[in-house]
Simulated scan of single mutants.
Amino acid sequence: MANKDDYLTYYREFFENFAQTVNPNDQLPVRLAGYKLLGTEVVGGIIDWTTQYLSQKKCPPHLFAPLIKIVIEEMRKACKKHPPICGFSPDDNAYEPLKLMQSVMAKTNEVCLRYLDNSMLCSLPSPNDSPVFYPTSTCAFKNCKRKMEDRHVVIHDLNTMLNIQEASPSSYYAVFDGHAGVDAAAYSAAHLHQFLAESHLFTNNPKQALYEAFCKTDAHFTDKCKVEHLSSGTTAVVALLRPKEKTLYVAWTGDSQALLASQGKLMQLVNPHKPNRPDEKDRIERNGGCVLLFGTWRVNGQLAVSRAIGWY
């Protein structure tokens, strides 16, 4: 993709293949969480579902952010203009996930099929215009669990996706190690970056914005657990990269790890939250809990991590 014609050919091949393989009658084209979405959570759901869907369709990496941005903008208008069609229930003051997801998938199909028109295709940004993009590899193993309870998120251009013009270009990477169910990891994977980017601190104080996004994710999910009778938790490790500032921010809860590798050397970026850490043990006991040894150190004899997002 060295010149304009190369990348437009690449884009055109994707959209032509998309048109040939799209199935508008598929009722469940992506993995769906079981909880209802409040109005403040819709954007996170849109990003989650469109990312899954475009990944299945082998979308060029540089197109994710601009396409999802358009889907978000048009779904916001659709939810405002025709809320029942998008799954909104006045009784719950929330969106039914299946109906909302199907509306999002229909909108994604509509948006992608527009670019079969060459004049529309030429309006898409060149890969050279992308402010941040780094080659990324991901891999996940379920092991012996009945369901995959873990999630990961890769967003190369968070600013474009969420139409943030004031902040320095940002890439976002996250891993969520779910336990006792998938809901906490699925919720965090869909909404933590949304809450981060929506924070008024995101532009000038990303460190505090990350802290508040973790707290907001935990608070909203635990509230949802009480209303919808859910019960699960997840560790989290998040990296926010701002290359123009030459700064990498890392935030975490629980014992998931992050390492920085450079010239054959490794640097551990995370100090895991485990019950056997003296400061964690003191904090737990001050709050009325206890740390007991049952093969490994556990909070109240149960949890092997001392912090997590979720409800137990």
Rank of each mutant, 00 (worst) to 15 (best):
A2H: 10
I284V: 09
D282T: 12
S171C: 03
V182N: 02
H200F: 08
K107H: 05
A251F: 14
G44A: 09
E73C: 07
A189P: 01
K36S: 09
K207F: 06
T50Y: 01
S262Q: 15
A209V: 02
D279F: 06
D157V: 02
V227A: 09
R283Q: 12
L63Y: 09
M101N: 02
F133W: 07
S199V: 02
V175N: 04
G45L: 10
L240D: 07
Q20A: 15
I155L: 13
E96I: 06
H62A: 13
S170H: 01
F141N: 13
D91V: 00
L210V: 01
S130D: 12
D279K: 01
L67P: 06
L293T: 01
N143E: 10
A190M: 07
R242P: 10
N3F: 07
E212R: 07
W49R: 07
E245F: 11
W49M: 04
C59M: 03
S232E: 14
L230I: 04
T235S: 15
A304S: 14
C86N: 11
C144F: 01
P169L: 06
A184C: 07
F88A: 05
T108V: 08
M101D: 00
K265Y: 14
K226G: 10
Q268H: 12
I164W: 02
M120L: 10
T203A: 15
Q208L: 15
N17M: 09
S119D: 12
I68A: 12
C112Y: 04
T9G: 15
Q302P: 00
G264T: 02
W297Q: 12
V154D: 00
T50S: 13
D5V: 03
E245Y: 07
L124M: 14
G34P: 10
K142F: 11
E285Y: 10
K4I: 05
A219P: 01
W49A: 06
E285N: 13
Q20F: 07
K4R: 14
L100W: 02
F14C: 13
L230F: 13
V250T: 04
E285K: 13
D183W: 00
K80P: 00
E41P: 00
S232G: 12
A2D: 15
T247L: 14
T217D: 06
N271V: 03
L121A: 14
Y11W: 12
R286Q: 15
K107P: 07
V111A: 05
W252H: 15
A19C: 09
S256M: 08
L241M: 10
T108P: 11
N118P: 05
I85M: 08
L32E: 00
S137A: 14
N118G: 09
L8F: 08
K274A: 04
Y11I: 08
R277G: 00
M148W: 02
I309D: 05
